[in-house]
């Protein structure tokens, strides 16, 4: 991991990082990755990865109409609304 990686992943994660913060972040992430690398002390070549603690499969529900449209209720948390649409900065010139 290096400074360029931090800049790349912060862009992917949509988080702004100031230039003077990069070194600190790099140091702390490297420490975490060192801790994570301890996983390599165990050979897991023949182990099936575990994605669900109880090994259950996702259930499918019946395709029936559930809760009704509650757009007005949900949009009460946002003052940037126009006619049920969310207002954002111009995307296309």
């Amino acid at each position: 991991m290096n400074k360029e990686t931090i800049i790349k992943i912060s862009d992917l994660a949509k988080i702004d990082i100031k230039d003077d913060q990069i070194d600190d972040i790099l140091t702390s992430l490297e420490k975490i990755l060192n801790l994570v690398d301890e996983m390599n002390s165990v050979n897991t070549d023949n182990v099936t990865p575990m994605s669900h603690p109880l090994n259950l499969k996702q259930e499918l529900r019946k395709d029936i109409v559930g809760a009704s449209d509650e757009r007005e209720l949900f949009q009460k948390n946002n003052k940037h609304i126009d006619n049920g649409y969310y207002i954002v900065p111009k995307i296309i010139d």
């Binding site: 994570v36 996983m39 390599n40 165990v42 897991t44 182990v47 099936t48 990865p49 575990m50 994605s51 603690p53």
Partner: peptide
Amino acid sequence: AYYLKAQKIRKVIS
């Protein structure tokens, strides 16, 4: 290297 490995360690612990 990371997520898949961690899911395997998870299985070992379990």
